[in-house]
Design a protein around this nucleic acid. Structure first.
Length: 476
RNA sequence: GGUCCGGUGGCCGAGUGGUCAGGCACGGGUCUGCAAAACCCGCCACGGCGGUUCAAUUCCGCCCCGGACCUCCA
């Protein structure tokens, strides 16, 4: 039974019912990184958001193909190579590898296909030839340009008219363009710049054609969802759509467009000149908890809203993870409850409302804690519209299943709580020995000694929690 | 200047035409040798001004404030 899914479609600027072209096989394309530098915080947001979307779709549909490209041809890469002396191939290989590692660290599953622009050149050339043949593109001075007036619907995706675009143009219009809005499909390369032979001479692709060619190669001319950062809506996605719809008239191209909001740092746009440019590596270096905490931070804000990254926010997200794992650590094994799962999952089906699902997850957490520690789970259960008291472990098992769709709280709870001991610091065995010594002191009513041991461990960052089942430890 | 998106309690952050978001912080309890954790209770917000309505934070208009984008490449 597939629940109704609704997503905000950028093209119509409204929430739309999601109806896959083929219910047996859902297809989604997300714009991936241009690999010229380490991924920054802003790059990670779409990856996390669309990872959740894919996990959600996989829960309901038998097959989902998720494509995310790697753009490894770009003048930013060329510039970087020229400045640093490192070869283009080395830069893109190294950066791609780092990207993979960083995305894994925030819990993002790899896409099903990850096409590279450099491996799709033939497809791009064929694509451009098709546009020329159809009267949608023209060659001029070694360039090939897309003829925007040939596509009457141009601007519909981003909600702009050609007049708007001309009025706002802040870049000089190249003299060989027929219309100011025309954009480059192919451009000539000089001897020092990477280039490929083409019918228009040695050159390289423009910015947008690679995504049209790669989505076509992987998913065909029609697919369900196209995702990316909101900054890509115009011109990148507008141009992609124009190219694809003109090359394949009658196709729908992407049926739905989803865009995530931008990420800011301390209330400011992230930029190198402001000195607030944060790579994901900067965050991951803070500890083994940082990847999941960052993911939690991202999910705490709705994907379309602007997200302001702050250290305080990251600390709070980490505390949320701590509380989740603390609950999971004390909950007994049990089966999950279908109604609880559906209740907590429902907000995700309504335009991926991760903050509300997280709130419901907290209710499940509180219910579990109340059940296992002798409190009253009434309030949380009533929010679910129920008046029963679940068996211990049931809310926790349900929590875990919903959290899996968000890609959080899937680690071993004890590893989370005890992970990341400093090298050369206390060994777990030494901590256990200290706990045993303290227990002996307590039995002998030597509370001064017991407290001394507690304080000693606290200095090492180890916190003891005395519970009904004995004493457990965790890192502060 | 144009297009679009937002302004919710000390902070973060959902949502709704009329009964509750939630979290953090804070205050008070329970439990506890101590501590921590957990649980329970409290904390009654919706940028401004008009309008529609029996009723608006929620709909409409205007204003103020913030943000995104306004085209490859020299």
């Amino acid at each position: 039974m597939i629940p109704e899914l609704f997503f905000h479609d950028s093209a119509t600027r409204q929430k739309q019912r999601f109806v896959p072209i083929d219910p047996q096989h859902v297809s989604i394309y997300v714009c991936g990184p241009t690999v010229y530098d380490l991924a920054h915080l802003g790059n990670a947001r779409p990856v996390i958001v669309f990872d959740v979307l894919v996990r959600l779709l996989r829960r309901f549909y038998p097959r989902v193909t998720y494509v995310r490209n790697i753009t490894d041809i770009d003048d930013k890469i060329n510039d970087r190579a020229r400045e640093s002396g490192e070869s283009i191939g080395a830069i893109t290989a190294r950066t791609t590898e780092a990207f993979h590692a960083d995305m894994a660290a925030v819990g993002a599953l790899p896409p099903d296909a990850e096409p590279r622009a450099t491996q799709t050149i033939a497809g791009m050339i064929a694509f451009i030839e098709r546009l020329i043949a159809g009267g949608h593109a023209y060659a001029a001075e070694g360039h090939v340009l897309f003829d925007t007036p040939s596509f009457p619907d141009y601007g519909a995706l981003s909600g702009r008219t050609p007049e708007d675009l001309i009025a706002g143009a802040r870049v000089e219009v190249a003299p060989f363009k027929r219309n100011p809005g025309d954009f480059v499909l192919w451009k000539p390369s000089d001897a020092e710049t990477p280039g490929w032979d083409s019918p228009w001479g040695r050159g390289r692709p423009g910015w947008h054609i690679e995504c049209s060619a790669m989505s076509l190669a992987q998913l065909g001319p029609d697919f369900d969802i196209h995702g990316g950062g909101h900054d890509l809506l115009f011109p990148h996605h507008e141009n992609e759509r124009a190219q694809s719809l003109c090359a394949y008239p009658g196709s729908g191209f992407a049926r739905m467009w989803l865009h995530n909001g931008m990420l800011r740092v301390n209330g400011e746009k992230m930029s190198k000149s402001l000195g607030n440019f944060l790579t994901l590596r900067d965050i991951l270096a803070r500890g083994p908890w940082a990847g999941e905490a960052f993911r939690m931070l991202v999910l705490k804000t709705h994907y379309r809203a602007a997200l302001d990254f702050t250290d305080a926010g990251l600390a709070e997200a980490r505390a949320d993870c701590d509380d989740d794992y603390a609950m999971l650590a004390r909950a007994p094994q049990a089966g999950s409850d279908r109604a609880m799962i559906d209740w907590a999952l429902a907000p995700l089906c309504d335009d991926l409302n991760t903050p509300l699902t997280l709130a419901r997850l907290r209710d499940l957490r509180t219910v579990e804690n109340a059940v296992t520690t002798g409190g009253s789970p009434t309030v949380g259960m009533e929010r679910m519209g129920r008046h029963d008291v679940p068996e211990p472990g049931v809310a926790a098992a349900s929590f875990r299943e919903v959290a899996a769709v968000l890609g959080i709280a899937q680690s071993d709870p004890t590893s989370w709580r005890q992970g990341g001991l400093e090298q050369g610091g206390l060994a777990p065995a030494a901590i256990e020995a200290a706990i045993a010594a303290r227990l002996a002191a307590r039995k002998a009513k030597d509370f001064a000694e017991a407290d001394r041991i507690r304080a000693e461990l606290a200095e090492q960052g180890v916190v003891l929690e005395d519970g009904a089942g004995g004493t457990v430890w965790r890192l502060a």
